[in-house]
Design a protein around this nucleic acid. Structure first.
Lengths: 200, 200
DNA sequence: CGCCTTCTGTAGTGCTCGATATAGAATTGG
DNA sequence: CCAATTCTATATCGAGCACTACAGAAGGCG
């Protein structure tokens, strides 16, 4: 029974920046979606060969899962940040939608939201379902937040948590689609502001 | 110089129902999108072999174009019908969104809107752009309709045509995405009703 | 009947897909 | 130094993609 060698030190070192390669993968999946991004596209953008990709990230599916997690913690973090930092659900949603307008139409990166668009028309049920459940979990989390604020008296009693969560999700996902169709930041900010008139 | 023979009478007759085959193609493109629907999927659902498909419909791209046109005249006709038959833009949009809720979540056919979802993440720029332009044309047409109604005094003077057209498009496209994620008719009808509170 | 036209089925075309077998290169541990 | 380990590059795998060449079948027309 041999002693387990210290992991990661032995052997030929990796010849590329794993973080930078992951960021390249994120851009490609964001722009073209999960299926339309080929391993050949990924390796070309990363500047590596397929065996290096598979050694560093597993297969295409696990790489995509890592990309989704990275997106949530970077470009997609504005949602949870808005809810966490604003005192009321209403203020959180207003800020989230306002920041979404700027983010979704930002010319510095692909338009729209990776969580929303990248798995549309995906032939892998597992991949599609995994991201779908994250979207639906976001809707439920928002509904819980609104409900808690109503219970605590921070929102009017006639506030409808389920409706407003569904409505906010629909508006955000619609804004993402509109951004992909070329809608600009100013137009999306108007949509975001208009959506807040629905609140009591 | 031979006289042109009467088209369609000579030769071996087609052995399948072209309309029924087109409807099968519509269902497949609706459910899986343009790229994820393979010619093998299409021929299997139509009960024919590839040469018959190509003889009757051209290639996959022209078949899809015919499917899009068919969708607009059938399942997607509720939009133009609502605008045409209602006296005001506001009533037209209210009816369109209400009917959309029922249509997008109808268990009798694939969820969501074919015009919205079937070309997301499409690698063919031509196909994606063709459908995108139809979506954007719908937004412009609605804006024109609202503007005309404001000019004619059928809508309040503080009605914002550009904003309401963008907002309505975002809500409709978001409802389509929510339907694809499993949102039911009742939830979408609530979203549709809520969206109308934005109007002055 | 025989000819022409059109459609159908078999069986492929070349291409791209995700993923990998194999061998060599680069590093640590002894 | 040598051995063990890990990564990299070349070349390729079988499967699926959109599409089609070819030959035969099925009809109208003379």
């Amino acid at each position: 029974m041999a002693t387990t060698p210290a992991a990661g030190t032995r052997g030929r070192p990796r010849s590329f920046d794993r973080e930078a390669a992951l960021e390249q993968a994120l851009r490609l999946f964001w722009q073209h979606g999960y299926e339309a991004t080929s391993v050949a596209d990924l390796t070309a953008a990363m500047g590596i060969r397929p065996p290096s990709l598979y050694a560093a990230f597993g297969d295409k599916r696990t790489l995509f899962a890592e990309v989704v997690a990275r997106y949530r913690e970077s470009h997609g973090a504005y949602t949870t940040r808005a809810y966490a930092e604003e005192p009321t659900a209403r203020a959180g949603v207003a800020r989230m939608l306002r920041e979404a307008a700027a983010e979704l139409a930002d010319p510095e990166h692909p338009w729209g939201c990776l969580m929303i668009s990248s798995t549309v028309n995906c032939t892998s049920p597992e991949v599609a379902q995994a991201v779908r459940e994250q979207r639906n979990a976001n809707v439920r989390a928002l509904e819980s937040r609104i409900r808690a604020d109503v219970a605590a008296g921070r929102e009017p009693a006639d506030t409808d948590p389920a409706l407003l969560a569904q409505f906010t999700a629909a508006v955000l996902q619609g804004m993402s689609q509109r951004a992909r169709d070329g809608a600009g930041r100013a137009e999306l900010e108007q949509v975001a502001a208009a959506a807040m008139r629905v609140w009591p």
